[in-house]
Computed example of a mutant assay.
Amino acid sequence: MKLLFIADPLESFKTAKDSTYAMMREAARRGHQLAACEPGQLRWASDGRAGGPVRARVRDITLTGDLHAWFHESAVRDVALRDFDAVLMRKDPPFDSEYFYATHLLEQAEREGARVFNKARALRDHPEKLAILEFPQFIAPTLVTREAQAVRDFHAQHRDIILKPLDGMGGMGIFRVKDDGLNLGSIIETLNLEGAQTLMVQKFIPAIAQGDKRILVIGGEPVPYSLARIPQGGEVRGNLAAGGKGVAQPLTARDREIATALGPILAARGLLLVGLDVIGEQLTEINVTSPTCFQEISEQSGFDVARRFIDALEAILAAG
C-alpha cells in the first residue's frame, strides 16, 4: 500500500513516544510505502472551467531504525491525494481555522476518491471536548457557556470544579477552583474574555489522583489496556505534556462499558481511531484528531497497538 501521513514536520517527531511514528514503523515492517506532508502543503486549483484533484507536495521516506536520524527522504513529489491507498490525518491540535480549512480540502479529496482516516467530516463534527455532550449518561456534571454568572452558579452548586477552554490541548489552560472560590472571577475573565469565548466547566472528579485514563478505540473495538496519566507534584492535570506519569493498566468494567457503547457509533461515522479520556468512571473527552499513547501502552503491556491499528486499516481498505 501507498500511505500518506499528514502531520507536523517530521523533524519535530519525538520518536521514542510518537504514535504516528509507531504507525509508520509497523506499516514499513509490512512493506508499505510511506510519504509525508504537512497541512500547509495541501492545495486545490481550478482553471475556471474545471477543478483538478487536491494535491500535495509530499516527501517519500524510508525508516532507518535510528530514533534520532529516523528517516531518509528519497524524493519530493507533487501528487494527488487520490493516488494513495490511504491518507492518514495526524496533525496535532489545536483545531484552529487552518486545521478546519484542511478538513475541507481533505473532504474534497474524498469526493475525488481519496480514502482519508479519520474522515474529514468526522473530524469537524467531533470537537474533542464538546463531543461528550452526545453521551450525557457517561459524563460528570458539565456546563458549556459564555456566561460568567452561569459559571458562578455551577460552582455554588458543585463547590469543587474544573474550568477549561474548548481549544486547549495537553492540559493547557485548565484550572481547578475549590469550595472557597478563590480566584474564580479572575479565571472566568481569563477563559471567557468577557463573554467572547465559550468555556467548559465540570464537577471535579477526585479519582484524577489515580489518573486520567486514555482508552484507545480502533475500528470500533477498544484496546484492552488504557494509559492512566497520573498527576505529579501537586498538579491537577494528568496530561503527559503537563508532567503526568503514564501507567498502562487493563480496562476496568466501566472503561469497557463506555468504550463498547461509543466505539461502534464513532467507527460508523468514519473515525478509525479514537482516544477516550476517562477519569474514574466518567468520560471527559473524545479525542479524534491525533490520539496518542501507542508506544507507552505497547511497551508496558506487551500489547502491540500499532499492529492492531495497521490491521484495522488494511481490513477497511481490503473491504473497498
Results as ranks from 00 to 15, higher is better:
residue 3 L to I: 15
residue 99 Y to F: 14
residue 317 L to W: 01
residue 114 A to C: 11
residue 11 E to M: 13
residue 231 P to Y: 08
residue 61 I to E: 08
residue 53 P to W: 11
residue 117 F to K: 01
residue 219 G to H: 10
residue 23 M to D: 01
residue 281 E to K: 14
residue 213 K to I: 11
residue 247 V to R: 06
residue 298 S to R: 00
residue 7 A to K: 04
residue 246 G to H: 01
residue 136 P to D: 07
residue 192 N to P: 00
residue 270 G to S: 02
residue 256 R to F: 11
residue 185 G to F: 11
residue 75 A to I: 15
residue 171 G to I: 02
residue 202 Q to Y: 10
residue 18 D to I: 07
residue 75 A to G: 14
residue 86 A to N: 08
residue 81 L to Q: 09
residue 117 F to N: 01
residue 292 T to A: 06
residue 151 V to I: 07
residue 201 V to N: 10
residue 210 Q to G: 07
residue 181 G to C: 10
residue 316 I to N: 08
residue 29 R to Q: 05
residue 194 E to M: 14
residue 213 K to G: 09
residue 48 G to I: 08
residue 56 A to I: 01
residue 217 V to Y: 02
residue 66 D to M: 04
residue 203 K to I: 14
residue 4 L to A: 14
residue 317 L to R: 04
residue 176 R to Q: 09
residue 200 M to D: 03
residue 222 P to M: 02
residue 22 A to F: 02
residue 242 A to C: 08
residue 225 Y to V: 06
residue 184 L to H: 12
residue 246 G to D: 00
residue 271 L to R: 10
residue 120 A to H: 06
residue 141 P to S: 14
residue 243 G to E: 08
residue 198 T to V: 13
residue 133 L to C: 11
residue 52 G to V: 12
residue 296 E to I: 03
residue 291 P to M: 04
residue 138 F to I: 05
residue 102 A to H: 00
residue 130 L to H: 02
residue 302 G to V: 03
residue 228 A to L: 04
residue 185 G to Y: 10
residue 15 T to I: 05
residue 33 Q to P: 02
residue 30 R to M: 00
residue 286 I to A: 13
residue 104 H to C: 06
residue 160 D to H: 15
residue 125 D to G: 09
residue 144 V to M: 11
residue 41 Q to R: 15
residue 33 Q to F: 14
residue 79 V to T: 13
residue 121 R to K: 14
residue 50 A to W: 09
residue 133 L to R: 12
residue 264 P to Q: 08
residue 249 Q to I: 06
residue 7 A to C: 12
residue 113 G to W: 02
residue 109 A to D: 03
residue 11 E to W: 10
residue 299 E to I: 07
residue 183 N to R: 15
residue 146 R to G: 06
residue 13 F to E: 02
residue 290 S to H: 07
residue 187 I to S: 00
residue 264 P to I: 08
residue 24 M to C: 11
residue 273 L to Q: 05
residue 115 R to H: 09
residue 305 V to P: 00
residue 281 E to T: 15
residue 92 D to I: 04
residue 277 D to Y: 12
residue 287 N to D: 05
residue 126 H to M: 08
residue 180 D to F: 03
residue 317 L to T: 05
residue 77 R to E: 15
residue 301 S to V: 00
residue 112 E to M: 10
residue 214 R to A: 10
residue 255 D to S: 09
residue 179 D to S: 13
residue 278 V to F: 12
residue 278 V to G: 08
